[in-house]
Simulated scan of single mutants.
Amino acid sequence: MKVFTRSQSGFSLVEIMITLALGLLITGAIIQVLVSNSLTERLNRSLASTQESGRFIITRLRNEFLMAGLYDVLDPALNTDQDIVLESAFVTNHPVILPGDFAVFNDVGSAQGAEGANDKVAIALQAQTDCRGYKLGYTADEEFFVVNEYFVDGKVLKCRGFDGRVLRGQKVAVEHDGHSPTIILDEVESFQVQYGYTNNLITGDNSGRPVSYVTADQLPAILADNGQVVAIRIAVLLKGDAEVSLNSVPSFKLLNETAISPSDKRLFKLFETTITLRNAKNLMRSRKI
């Protein structure tokens, strides 16, 4: 009687080790792709956030600064409780407010930050609301003398608005007496401002073109010498909101300031623009040498 035996076969140890090694390589490659995709997604999100924030803040500041020095005594919506002729002269000659321009809140005004610190800028205009959207006691359809001040608190760009007549001591604040600021934009690493001024005696004409750009601390002497601010140049350095870690962050030079290198190894982007104050420029064009 013959007995048949069935031979059994399987993977050898070498084959198993090779399979495991290939599996580890494939798994590692998949993980690397996933990590790379995650980093790319966060980088794209950070870049998109800075681009969106940059476009927003440049557009908003441009739209608001363009109105600096605006005052129309013939506007039927203008509140006439005060002498609008004298008020018009003040606003048109002070499109950019400096500390000390008002008896009340004499710290309100444009200021140069010390040693690269953030700057502050304040403008005067006729408007329906202040930069926070407040009517400050005026009726819905009325326009009034507004002073808007923009500054950075920590890493947040804020603005606060004032009734110019309250600042001049002509009336008592009846709404939002605390002048609490409102947030415009987060993740602001640096905010710098320069002012383009003209002087008809220097230009030799009534073109109103800027002859130079200076900082806020230089403006008092320029204005005392019959100069006038006709443009505002701003630079804003923004940080992306996504958690992206970079090996190195480049240096950024904002206007006249020394180049800075942020300590946080995140994505940063610089935005700059120059805004012509058309109301102030037209005023200088109408003056004779």
Rank of each mutant, 00 (worst) to 15 (best):
R6D: 00
S7D: 11
Q8Y: 07
G10W: 03
G10S: 14
F11A: 05
F11P: 02
S12L: 01
L13W: 05
V14I: 08
V14L: 08
E15I: 01
I16L: 15
I18S: 10
T19F: 10
L20R: 06
L20P: 04
L20W: 01
L22V: 14
G23L: 13
L24H: 00
L24Q: 02
T27V: 09
G28A: 03
A29M: 09
I30G: 01
I31Q: 07
N37C: 02
T40Y: 14
T40G: 09
R42Y: 14
N44S: 14
S46Q: 00
S49M: 10
Q51L: 09
R55L: 12
R55F: 08
R55I: 03
I57R: 15
I57S: 11
T59A: 15
R60D: 15
L61C: 11
N63V: 02
L66S: 10
L66K: 05
L66D: 12
L66G: 01
M67W: 10
M67S: 12
L70D: 01
D72R: 13
D72P: 00
D72V: 01
D72E: 06
L74F: 05
D75Y: 09
P76E: 05
L78T: 08
N79V: 02
D83I: 08
I84E: 07
I84F: 04
I84V: 12
V85K: 03
V85T: 13
L86Y: 14
E87Q: 15
S88M: 13
S88I: 02
S88F: 08
A89P: 06
A89T: 13
V91I: 12
T92K: 12
H94K: 01
P95C: 12
V96E: 06
P99G: 08
G100Y: 04
D101P: 08
D101R: 05
D101K: 04
F102R: 02
A103Q: 09
A103D: 09
A103R: 06
A103V: 11
F105Q: 09
N106L: 00
N106K: 04
D107G: 00
G109N: 00
S110G: 01
S110F: 09
A111Q: 12
G113V: 11
G113Y: 09
A114K: 11
A114R: 10
A114S: 11
E115V: 08
E115C: 04
G116L: 07
N118K: 15
N118C: 05
D119C: 14
D119I: 12
D119V: 13
D119N: 14
V121A: 05
V121L: 10
V121W: 09
A122C: 10
A124L: 10
Q126T: 07
A127I: 04
Q128E: 02
